[in-house]
């Protein structure tokens, strides 16, 4: 069992952080080696993740479910899947909370990852270190994603008067996937009501 307990300080507003962290496409873009797949009717979606344990590259495929509460800015992610060799299964559960900090936004992430199968013996204690590094990388990416977009350098003699909070441009495919994911979430929300 690998435990994640991480508090990320993001120099941005809670609403901006929530906008990113509640969007699967955005979250995936913060994780190196991750890709988003098809969405399912129940609101879950497929995902793949390539992880390097030592010198060995392992590709996992998972079904991911995301429950979001925009009122409290809290979410819960569950993922369940196995690797390409079909030798190892994994489950992951994580909750995240976005709250206002002292001049910044704090994101509290608590989670557990369980590996069962051949890989578990292969990676031993190193899996925890790998997850720890991935969490750090995710934190760095999240901070970058949430940062206000830098305005173009002002021409000499022209005053810079505005800043923008527009999210970084995404590819058409990325925008479509994000739109689809949001649509599915709304549908799921409507059904729940």
């Amino acid at each position: 069992m690998i435990t994640i307990t991480e508090e990320i300080a993001v120099p941005s507003t809670p609403s901006r952080v929530w906008e990113i962290i509640s969007d699967p496409a955005e979250v995936v873009s913060c994780i190196s080696g991750a890709e988003l797949g098809a969405s399912h009717e129940d609101g879950s979606f497929d995902g793949t993740l390539v992880v390097k344990f030592g010198a060995v590259r392992v590709k996992f495929a998972a079904v991911v479910a995301l429950e979001l509460d925009p009122e409290t800015l809290e979410g819960r992610l569950t993922a369940r899947g196995r690797d390409g060799q079909r030798a190892t299964r994994f489950t992951a559960e994580a909750t995240f909370r976005v709250r206002q900090g002292d001049g910044e936004t704090r994101v509290q992430v608590d989670g557990e990852i369980s590996l069962n199968g051949k890989l578990a013996s292969l990676v031993e204690a190193g899996a925890g270190a790998v997850v720890s590094r991935m969490t750090k990388e995710f934190s760095d990416q999240l901070i970058q994603r949430c940062a206000p977009e830098r305005a173009p350098e002002a021409a000499p003699g022209i005053a810079l008067v505005t800043t923008t909070t527009t999210p970084p441009a995404r590819s058409l495919f990325g925008r479509l996937r994000a739109w689809w994911a949001r649509l599915r979430r709304k549908e799921a929300h409507a059904k729940a009501e």
């Binding site: 390097k52 344990f53 030592g54 010198a55 292969l122 990676v123 031993e124 204690a125 190193g126 899996a127 925890g128 270190a129 790998v130 590094r133």
Partner: peptide, 10 residues
């Protein structure tokens, strides 16, 4: 050991 214990890509 660096691979197994620390997950290092070495």
């Amino acid at each position: 050991y660096r691979r197994l214990l620390y997950g290092e890509d070495v």
